[in-house]
Design a protein around this nucleic acid. Structure first.
Length: 268
DNA sequence: GCGACAG
DNA sequence: ATCTTGTCGC
């Protein structure tokens, strides 16, 4: 896949003010509601014994032959180089894996992550032959100071539906405390607060999603922080993350991209 | 000065 | 993100 909006390709040599101005343009171009052709209910990891329909029937491999293509992208770092890996799934089946290695031009700055990692991610997408129906990006989407996190930046630039899947909250305020143990499958709305300068306070910009939890143990797992990247609503984003969780905290596309990036890093 | 901060 | 031993639990 190649950028559909080349003017949004992240340029690490821009000044901080220019980066922030670009993010405001990207947020303007972003669509934070469902705008895709596939059936989100057809996204699942169900095997042969799923609730088969005429249009989406799992075969003996556990693959739903015409299930949507869901991709995960994640990065690993080696010195001043970034490894970006993409894994594309149809049901449980891996249909494509690619990676790219690019130098990191700038250090990590909260709020400007896409200018550090975006180049490597777009290079990996340039090597991708499939056209995923939706992409899970590691990091924030709409949960961002200017509603233009990594997932939004990548989604708008490629004009592909994206979801931000983060392990920590960048900004915004949970409607309920996240300190208590939440049951598996639960979600808590994240509202814009004063830190989100482009949205009215109270706007739901994402969800804390409990993709995995221990049953009868005193220990507990922290929820993921899910937000729309581009062309998905916060609700559908949370639904899709839960639909692709397979007993691990991270959804399968993200988990597989994560381990692939690590293995590439290993033989580097 | 203090707090807060995806990866 | 990355650097890392042991340890707890299913």
């Amino acid at each position: 896949m190649e950028p559909v909006r080349p003017e949004f390709v992240p340029d690490p040599s821009l000044s901080t003010a220019e980066m922030e101005a670009l993010q405001r343009e990207i947020a303007d171009a972003a669509v934070f509601e469902d705008d895709f052709a596939f059936d989100p209910a057809a996204v699942s990891l169900d095997g042969p014994v799923g609730q088969a329909t005429l249009s989406a029937r799992p075969d003996e491999e556990g693959t739903t032959s015409d299930a949507p293509l869901v991709a995960g992208v994640d990065q690993a770092f080696v010195g001043d180089r970034a490894v970006s890996a993409i894994v594309v799934l149809r049901g449980r089946e891996v249909v494509e894996r690619v990676y790219a290695v690019e130098p990191t031009e700038i250090p990590y700055v909260p709020g400007l992550l896409s200018f550090r990692e975006g180049g490597a991610i777009l290079a990996a997408f340039a090597a991708l032959e499939s056209e995923p129906d939706i992409v899970f990006v590691d990091g924030s989407g709409r949960i961002h100071y200017r509603e233009a996190g990594l997932a939004t930046h990548v989604g708008v630039t490629l004009d592909v539906p994206t979801i931000g899947v983060a392990k920590n909250l960048l900004c915004g305020r949970p409607r309920e405390s996240l300190d208590e143990k939440l049951p598996e499958g639960a979600r808590v709305a994240i509202e814009a607060d004063a830190q989100v300068e482009t949205a009215p306070a109270g706007t739901v910009v994402g969800y804390a999603v409990q993709s995995r939890q221990y049953e009868s143990s005193s220990r507990y797992v922290n929820p993921l922080v899910v937000s729309p990247g581009h062309r998905v609503s916060a609700e559908t984003a949370a639904d899709l993350v839960l639909a692709t969780a397979a007993g691990y905290k991270l959804p399968e596309p993200t988990r597989l991209a994560d381990s692939y990036a690590d293995s590439v890093k290993g033989d580097l």
